[in-house]
Design a binder for these strands. Structure first.
Length: 1010
RNA sequence: GGGCCAUUAGCUCAGUUGGUUAGAGCACAGUCCUGAUAAGACUGGGGUCUGUGGUUCGAGUCCACAAUGGCCCA
């Protein structure tokens, strides 16, 4: 006996029971261990930040990872998998700063790094409970108890080891380069961080500044009035740092005369400015202007700011004071004629192009802004934040007559992705990994990776690699893996340390506390003796980019190479599969690929599913500020995890942006899960009535319909296996949907009578065997997709009747298709039958004859003998479905010609179907009998009878019904399980109803037979 | 400015290597079926397959350009 199934199922509640079953019986652990002897399939879990509530997109990623890994497990692969958490980095620090009400680094220093980092450590797992709850609730199987954390000493030590490998290859260097700098966070940002913070329509000043020429070069410039070079900028605060002006050597410039002086700017851009008070004097070539000397707007020496100068090797040295300081016009290919004046203000301290020009041409270098973004020196605007200094500088220049015009402009400008402060481009020293040295290797490695969707390989990821720049991997922050680089106070030598042991064994090593903690400030306190001069080695203050942490995850999660060396080298050193959202192309996907190419010279993942964003119902990005964020837990509690999972798998392929609407999840329940559930409940209901006991193996089916559904089933298994093997869970899922629809609306619909009839014959057994096979196979096919529903069905259909079966569907193997049962002819035949039925129903609809009224003849057009034979094979199905006595085949012309009285004809896509509409007395009587049966069935239900209860029928009918009742007594009795039909209604019946059929009265009553 | 992706019914999506009259579900209306089905069937309205060119006997599908939206880079 199977456990009775209620067709009013509460999926969310049921899922919770199953979660408990899995936990109590450690099914996840068993599912992994059971495959211990199988081939390894390596999956890496990318570490999320657990410092916010998980969102619907996290459910998406986890669901996708799960379906693949569960599938592979069922295919016999051994896949231990542990969760991970990204615990370092700016987001954590900012959260703590917010808590403490801080707004900058000096406050942290004052507060104390030790205490601050302690708070960071505590803050990291604030939302861990929510994350773990979500993870378990959606049925994502991953080892949460042994999750790796990037802040663990073992993890950090592996990261150190990794950096040391790169160091030893000579690929770590300290460079003086212009980096995007957040003045609030006080740190450089990596390019992938910058890219997250661009804002369109940022309003900035747009100012035109006059630089006074003091010594001309080749251009014959007038001397009667001052001559000014006109430059344009959107960042007035960089003007004190100006050390050159650049022109395009091949462009044409004009000299304009005004009342109080001359102006020089590009000819092409002169028209974009209001210069009606000026008149053109002559044209100049850009080349002629190169070398022209001009007066600085602010001579740094007069404002207490140091002036440095580039040497050929790129180093900078301080310069002597000079009262008559002049700068020169240079030629630059970066000067465009698209905006501005064609004369570019160059400040090497504040722009990459400017810096490179400075290095190349040996320009002066003036840095009058500190790392907090405040102006230094003794300018009138000193001490102000750069943006606040802008108007003051403009006023100052206005007063001195050097500001020609000022306005505002809207453009795209980068802001800090976390704290929203405007980024400043700022030249400073920082640590780099020379990834450009392995660019070709990374590109070659990418060729071997399978991306889903495929275009990521050449597109997003490929482009990113092509444009590779060295990785600025250090952060001037507190909570992160400290850079294991020590510097000698005396001789300036650097040493990189690759392990705790190495550090401890350094000569004169001091300051290691016990137990050791590899974080700041403890590591800052560790010193040792310089290997070169014996001086004191002090750690450089930076911590590492947290992308370096997460990219080290393949080996650091198991403390490689200090532990598990063989495991990693031989088995887990390369992932077969990873998956995250598309924003990780420049994040985790890149850091994994870069680090692995640096360390091992090969790619570290073979297959990657790259998911797209989830938008709200209107196609807008979900964000807290818009209030359109969907809480996944709410969705699950209402509709269930299986439905949400299914939505993620089948609503669109991985590479497509999807609009999330909770209505779609509800629809999945109605359409797919409830349909399947009802087939299942139908089966269990009748199987229990007939005491059906599935045998260990079934004989081949004899009925065409059974052969058909098993053919479809095996085709489905083959398709799903093939598609999932290629990571195409979307199409595989959609095929399951189609199958379930066919199973319910064709197979079961056309087989109902076989289960209902009273004899326990071979045909009935065949029907049970076939449907049982379908349901059990479906449970296994669905196990990776909807693990809860699959488990529920499996427990009842398999475990209830076979005690030696595996404890859970998730310990089963993935089904194997029996291709010998696949018969394309059967598939075609049934498709034809469905089509004819559809046309037949249309024909009935057209003439208003309901299915319950039997008809005499169905004509179907055929074009050849082949079709005629196919129709003959499926004729019984069609005739029963359409309730027609006889099927005749004819040519298209003949059937189409039946469009006359007594026929209803419908034609579609070259097939014509016609039904005879003439109703004989006999047909009418049978129709009435069916109508009565229908009413009686409804009464049985209303009376609350069990499906197998036998009844007695009583009637009190007009003469109109007599023939129908007497002529079809056996039929009525059989259909309604009536032992008797009597034509008088006694008092003690269970239910009595008055009916009206065709205008005639009919009183019916039913009584249960005890 | 550059790259990638998308655009098919009111909504969510299919549409194989180019090949009859472009499909499904949801929603809407009407009718029907039903002792498994809170399901289903039939009919109807609703499509210049974003646009313009091109290749071809034939284009939703291939090519070019453009528009719109999204993502990424600068």
């Amino acid at each position: 006996m199977f456990k009775p199934v209620n067709n009013r199922v509460d999926f969310p509640k049921q899922e919770e029971d199953i979660l408990k079953f899995w936990k109590d019986n450690t099914i996840f652990e068993k599912s992994v261990d059971a495959r211990k002897d199988g081939k390894r399939f390596v999956f890496y879990e990318g570490p999320p930040f657990a410092n916010g509530n998980p969102g619907i997109h996290h459910v998406l990623a986890r669901a996708i990872k799960d379906v693949i890994v569960r599938y592979k497990t069922m295919k016999g692969y051994y896949i231990p998998r542990i969760a991970g958490w990204d615990t370092h980095g700016l987001p954590v620090e900012l959260e703590v700063e917010r808590q403490l009400g801080f707004s900058g680094k000096d406050q942290i220093e004052k507060y104390g790094v030790e205490e601050f980092n302690k708070k960071c450590r505590e803050s990291v797992f604030k939302y861990l409970k929510e994350w773990n709850f979500m993870t378990e609730r959606i049925g994502y199987w991953v080892d949460l108890d042994h999750a790796y954390k990037t802040m663990d000493n073992t993890y950090v030590e592996s990261v150190w080891w990794a950096l040391k490998q790169i160091w030893d290859k000579g690929l770590v260097y300290q460079g003086y380069r212009v980096t995007p700098h957040c003045p609030r966070c006080g740190t450089s940002l990596s390019s992938h961080e910058v890219s997250q913070g661009y804002k369109d329509d940022t309003e900035d000043p747009s100012v035109y500044i006059k630089f006074r020429v003091v010594k001309e070069a080749k251009a014959k410039l007038p001397t009667n009035k001052p001559v000014y070079l006109l430059a344009w900028t959107t960042t007035p605060w960089t003007l004190p740092g100006n050390t050159a002006l650049a022109v395009a050597p091949d462009a044409e410039y004009v000299l304009l005369e005004g009342e109080n002086g001359y102006l020089i700017l590009a000819a092409r851009l002169a028209g974009t400015l209001d210069l009606k008070d000026y008149q053109e004097v002559k044209k100049l070539n850009g080349k002629e202007l190169v070398g022209t000397e001009y007066q600085p707007l602010y001579n740094p020496h007069e404002f207490g700011v140091e002036r440095l100068k580039f040497h050929h090797d790129g180093t900078l040295t301080a310069q002597k004071e000079s009262k008559d300081l002049t700068y020169k016009v240079i030629g630059g290919d970066f000067v465009t004629m698209e905006d501005g004046t064609g004369i570019v203000h160059v400040a090497p301290a504040f722009g990459e192009v400017d810096f490179n020009a400075g290095k190349e041409l040996g320009l002066s270098f003036v840095q009058q802004v500190d790392l907090q973004g405040k102006i230094t020196g003794n300018y009138s605007f000193a001490g102000k934040f750069v943006k606040a200094a802008d108007p003051l500088i403009m006023d100052d220049l206005q007063e001195r007559g050097l500001l020609l015009h000022s306005g505002t402009i809207k453009h795209t400008y980068p802001f800090c992705w976390r704290c929203d402060a405007p980024l400043l481009y700022y030249a400073k020293t920082t640590w780099y990994i020379k990834t450009t040295a392995i660019k070709d290797k990374m590109i070659a490695g990418n060729e071997t990776i399978n991306w889903y969707p495929e275009h990521i390989k050449k597109g997003r990821f490929g482009n990113w690699l092509e444009n590779n720049v060295d990785w600025a991997f250090a952060r001037e922050r507190y909570w992160g893996s400290p850079l294991p680089i020590w510097k000698c106070e005396k001789c300036g030598a650097f040493e990189c340390v690759g392990s705790i042991e190495e550090l401890e064994k350094k000569p004169g090593c001091q300051g290691i506390k016990s137990p050791i903690d590899l974080h700041r400030p403890y590591m800052d306190e560790v010193t040792f003796n310089c290997g070169k001069c014996g001086g004191k080695m002090q750690r450089t203050p930076e911590v590492m980019d947290c992308w370096f942490d997460s990219g080290s995850m393949p080996f650091a999660q198991t403390h490689y190479p200090f532990e598990n060396k063989e495991l990693f080298d031989k088995e887990t050193g390369q992932a077969d599969f990873i998956s995250e959202a598309v924003d990780q192309t420049r994040g985790w996907f890149y850091s994994l690929h870069a680090i692995s190419t640096l360390l091992f010279g090969r790619p570290i993942f073979k297959n990657c599913i790259c998911l797209e964003l989830i938008l709200d119902t209107k196609g807008k990005k979900m964000s807290k500020s818009k209030g359109n964020v969907v809480d996944p837990i709410e969705v699950i509690q209402k509709h269930g995890a299986d439905a949400l999972r299914w939505y993620n798998y089948t609503s669109s392929p991985p590479g497509a942006v999807r609009r999330f609407d909770v209505k779609m999840v509800a629809e999945i329940n109605r359409q797919l899960l409830m349909t399947l559930w009802n087939v299942y409940s139908f089966f269990v209901m009748y199987a229990n009535i007939d005491h059906y006991q599935p045998a260990d193996s079934f004989p081949p089916p004899s009925t065409e319909l059974d052969k058909w559904i098993l053919s479809e089933l095996n085709q489905l298994v083959a398709d799903c296996d093939n598609l999932l093997e290629n990571y195409n869970y979307t199409d595989a899922g959609r095929k399951i949907e189609t199958f379930v629809d066919g199973l319910s609306n064709w197979y079961v619909r056309r087989s109902r009578r076989r289960f209902w009839k009273s004899e326990n014959d071979e045909d009935k057994l065949s029907a049970y065997n076939s449907l049982y096979t379908c349901l059990v196979t479906l449970a296994k096919l669905l196990a990776p997709y909807t693990p809860f529903l699959a488990e529920e069905m499996y427990q009842n259909l398999v475990r209830e009747v076979k005690q030696d079966a595996p404890l859970s569907v998730h310990l089963e193997d993935f089904p194997v298709a029996d291709t010998s049962l696949i018969d394309k002819q059967l598939s075609d035949d049934n498709r034809l039958a469905m089509k004819v039925c559809s046309l037949g129903r249309a024909a009935r609809n057209k003439c208003g004859l309901k299915i319950r009224q039997p008809l005499e003849t169905l004509y179907v057009s055929v074009t050849n003998e082949f079709e005629a034979r196919a129709l003959e094979r499926v004729a019984p199905l069609i005739l029963e479905e359409l309730n027609i006595k006889e099927l005749k085949t004819e040519t298209l012309e003949k059937v189409g010609g039946l469009e006359v009285a007594n026929f209803s004809t419908v034609t579609e896509m070259g097939t014509c179907v016609s039904i005879s509409t003439y109703i004989t007395i006999e047909l009418q009587a049978e129709g009435i009998a069916r109508e009565i049966i229908h009413r009686l069935q409804t009464m049985r239900r209303n009376a609350g009878y069990e499906i197998a209860d036998h009844i007695k029928i009583y009637h009190d009918a007009d003469a109109y019904f007599i023939q129908a009742i007497s002529g079809f007594t056996d039929y009525i009795r059989q259909e309604t399980l009536a032992d008797d039909i009597e034509d008088d209604i006694p008092e003690d019946v269970d239910l009595k109803e008055e009916h009206k059929i065709g205008g005639y009265h009919l009183n019916l009553a039913v009584k249960k037979v005890k």
